[in-house]
Nucleic acid binder design. Structure first.
Lengths: 138, 138
DNA sequence: GTTGGTGCAAATAGTTTGCACAGTT
DNA sequence: AACTGTGCAAACTATTTGCACCAAC
């Protein structure tokens, strides 16, 4: 996700409104490093904005994802997680504690240049997931 | 997934029973190239075994996954898909039609040797997903 | 006969939607 | 004033579980 000012600008340019609820969500995502689920985000924003609804969080996440400001991670079969870090990187996923971690990938790896992708297929993003057990859970 | 005979042998060795329902499921998976969801598999097996229940299909898929005979793919946020092909390969996922395709990966890519994975993390499998739009849907 | 499997029905959980009212522009 | 956003409640969908009966071994 970009700077809040830039995201706000994009929303306004798209005719979307800036509400206190949305600003709280932007703020939280900006500082986040934990790959939260929609519900995680909801429960966090609740602390700052006790009257916010899950629906609002949910719809704002959809909008941000559709704008390409954050990634929806399909890594945990039980629920979606969101990642505001749009740089090329991979993830670890622990099958036991369900924790998601970041893996830095050297830029020369060119994740987006996967071999054998048909020319006709338009790649938006490449997700790389190492699935297994973290140190704690072994 | 291995040959049916080998899978049957593994089940017996683990004290698990071989039923007509399970054999139908094994057969179907063996010939499958389409990354079906649990429900896809259920509807296919129904044709051969009209009295089978979703629960039976579901539990057998869990067992096969836990044995490492097939992979559960977290690629479609809406549902899990299963892949009996356990060789190192990647997938394409079309956001529009939800189709999953295979991508061959040269063995020298060493998918399982992702850089920067903490020593303490035990990697079971690495999933690589190119997410975007297929030729048809563009 | 013992033990695990099957199938039904119900519970659970995450996600998504319709709608009336409120807030932003 | 026009139009989008919010929040509630309900619907939906996939997944998971409890349990009585059945079948493989």
């Amino acid at each position: 996700m970009r700077d809040i000012e830039k995201v706000v600008k994009r929303f306004r340019e798209a005719g979307l409104k800036i509400t206190p609820q949305r600003l709280s969500i932007f703020n939280l995502l900006q500082r986040n490093r934990t790959h939260p689920s929609a519900d995680d985000i909801y429960r966090e924003v609740l602390k700052v904005h006790p009257s916010i609804s899950f629906t609002t969080v949910y719809k704002t996440l959809q909008t941000l994802r559709d704008m390409g400001e954050l990634q929806e991670l399909s890594i945990n079969p039980e629920r979606s997680h969101f990642d505001p870090d749009m740089s090329e990187h991979a993830h670890t996923f622990c099958r036991s504690c369900k924790q998601i971690g970041d893996l830095e990938i050297a830029p020369e790896t060119h994740l987006l240049k996967l071999p054998n992708v048909p020319d006709s297929f338009e790649v938006h993003s490449v997700q790389v997931h190492a699935v297994g057990l973290c140190g704690e859970c072994r």
